[in-house]
Amino acid sequence: MGLKGKLITSIEVKCEGHSIHDILHTNMHHVPTISRSINQFEIHKNEIIKVGLIISWNYDEGGQNKFTKQIIEDIDPHKKSIRWKIIGGDVLEMYNSFTIAVSCEPQWVTWTIEYEKKTEDTPEPLIELGIILDLNKDIEGHLVKN
């Protein structure tokens, strides 16, 4: 059995938090053009962004191209939250399970990563958290500029 952990960060945003939720919920296909880290986005199942949708991302991690395949586990339009479970890709080489959740309030965006490490020597997913924070900054910058 691995070691479970949770990382939570809340970021004050200059734009409305619901605008970030809207991009992540209804306009995910725009993320590769907004983000410096996300290179490609693909929908594998369904056409509408809803629970059960399977998506994949290619992203840059320290100059290396990485891949993640995810399923949307939960969307709450009233709470402006989304939760993705990683079901394939590079992250699962080090973690038995990995979920990412975002919750958007008017001036705050909260990201949560829940994970289970394969071994005690596996590092905390701080690099992955950094990529998420960069994505948040890129989306916020895009929204403030427009």
Rank of each mutant, 00 (worst) to 15 (best):
M1E: 05
G2A: 10
K4W: 03
G5W: 06
G5L: 06
L7Y: 02
L7P: 00
L7M: 06
I8L: 02
I8G: 00
E12I: 06
E12F: 05
K14E: 13
K14I: 00
K14W: 02
E16W: 02
H18L: 01
S19P: 00
I20T: 00
H21G: 00
D22M: 08
D22E: 15
D22R: 01
L24I: 01
L24M: 08
L24F: 01
T26P: 00
N27P: 01
H30F: 08
H30V: 04
P32M: 03
T33M: 14
I34S: 01
S35N: 04
S35E: 01
R36Y: 02
Q40A: 12
Q40H: 12
F41Y: 15
F41C: 06
E42T: 11
E42H: 09
E42L: 07
H44A: 03
N46A: 08
N46W: 05
E47Y: 08
I48Q: 10
I48M: 06
G52S: 14
I55E: 09
S56C: 12
W57Y: 14
D60R: 14
D60H: 12
G63I: 09
Q64H: 15
N65P: 08
T68M: 11
E73G: 07
E73F: 07
D74E: 15
P77I: 12
H78Y: 10
K79R: 15
K79Y: 15
K80N: 13
K80F: 09
K80S: 06
I82H: 07
W84L: 14
W84K: 06
K85C: 10
K85F: 06
K85E: 09
I86P: 07
I86R: 11
I87M: 05
I87Y: 08
G88C: 07
G89S: 11
D90M: 02
D90V: 01
V91E: 13
V91H: 12
L92S: 04
M94L: 12
Y95H: 09
Y95E: 06
N96I: 00
S97F: 07
S97Y: 11
T99E: 14
A101M: 13
V102Y: 10
S103G: 03
E105V: 14
E105N: 14
E105K: 15
P106T: 11
T110M: 03
T110E: 04
T110Y: 02
W111C: 13
W111Q: 13
T112S: 02
I113G: 04
E114N: 09
E114K: 05
E114G: 02
Y115V: 06
K117Q: 06
K118Y: 01
T119D: 05
T119K: 08
T119W: 03
E120R: 03
E120Y: 02
E120D: 07
D121M: 11
T122W: 12
T122K: 11
T122P: 04
P123V: 07
P125I: 11
L126I: 11
L126Q: 01
I127V: 15
E128Q: 13
L129H: 03
G130K: 13
I132M: 09
I132R: 04
I132Q: 08
L133N: 11
D134I: 15
D134H: 10
D134M: 13
L135Q: 10
N136E: 12
K137R: 10
K137F: 08
K137S: 09
E140V: 10
G141T: 04
H142Q: 03
L143T: 04
L143K: 03
V144N: 01
K145D: 02
N146Q: 11
